[in-house]
Amino acid sequence: MLKHKIVLTLAAMLICLASLAQTGEITPERKRAIDSLALEKVRDLGRYITIIGNKETPFSEGNRVIDRAVELFAEGSEIGVSSLFRTELQYFPVRRYFERLMALNYDKVSVQWYKVQYISDLELQPDGRYVGIITIFQRFEGTTAEGMTYSDVTKKDITVYVERKKTQISGREIEFWDVLLGDIRVKETKAL
């Protein structure tokens, strides 16, 4: 059901963005459409992280969701993590990050996303793609079988690559804007 909803949403946005992709310029209206698609991908990532972190998720299902989550990202993307006590970044390839999340020794994992976000302007990079950063805040809570709870609040700065692509639909060439996630900077932050 969830997968069905995601596919429908993405298809609707693809059609919407295709109509806006007639020129290369990113107008404020097009920027808003791209922002929506990018945020939808970020929300997908959130859903996947919750499933991957949940101990009740069977191992094979967890690996399948990791594959889906990795598909959201551009190749070579990494996640850089720091804490309040260790400012130096630790880098993980995205797949490794998800595998570590799945292997966490918590009986129960809760990942909540604040409805606070900031989406940067899109900047053109030398390869012709646009890049932007979406900032979100997330609360993680893990409880062990013994009842010990660990929680943190992190600021996640998520890279978003936006690229104009072409596809064939019923023999017609349609241009559309595709969005892929890139490197993510995860910084533990003070909650209040």
Binding site: G46, S110, Q112, Y114, K115, V116, F137, R139, A191, L192
Partner: peptide, 15 residues
Amino acid sequence: FAQPVGDYTGDPSAF
């Protein structure tokens, strides 16, 4: 509107 998704009730206005 600054409420997290889920049942966490902390005040995220600082965000």
